[in-house]
């Protein structure tokens, strides 16, 4: 294959690839209930919605319980900067399933107010 052709293929693939990534999200988690998290393996990416209660916040960590109609789970966010959450707020959390003291919890990547 000549370098000229290889270059054209590379350039076209680069642009198409970037457009694909821009408009089609990779690995976006499906919205699930908190009860369904029990069936998932650790380190799964999840997206859940619920109501906040029992907020605890320091400079390095933010934890709260998230409750939906099926269950309650603890959410942890490390290094919470500029995040302001209130009790009884409806939010959506995307994160990873982890355990702490033998209990399942979510290490949040993003928190969105609804």
């Amino acid at each position: 294959m000549q370098d000229k052709h290889l270059f054209l293929i590379a350039l076209i693939l680069s642009v198409i690839g970037l457009l694909f990534l821009l408009f089609i999200p990779l690995n976006e988690s499906k919205l699930i209930t908190i009860k369904e998290i029990n069936k998932l393996p650790l380190d799964s990416n999840v997206k859940i919605r619920g109501v906040i209660n029992n907020i605890y916040k320091t400079d390095k960590i933010l934890t709260f319980n998230l409750t939906d109609p099926t269950d309650t789970i603890k959410i942890t966010l490390f290094n919470p900067k500029d995040i302001n959450l209130n009790k009884n707020s409806n939010i959506e959390v995307s994160g990873i399933v982890k355990t702490y003291n033998n209990n399942l919890e979510i290490h949040a990547n993003t928190i969105k107010k609804l």
């Binding site: 290889l6 270059f7 293929i9 590379a10 350039l11 693939l13 680069s14 690839g17 970037l18 694909f20 990534l21």
Partner: peptide, 8 residues
């Protein structure tokens, strides 16, 4: 995609 860009 990165490989394509890496060729340029």
């Amino acid at each position: 995609i990165a490989t394509s860009i890496g060729f340029i």
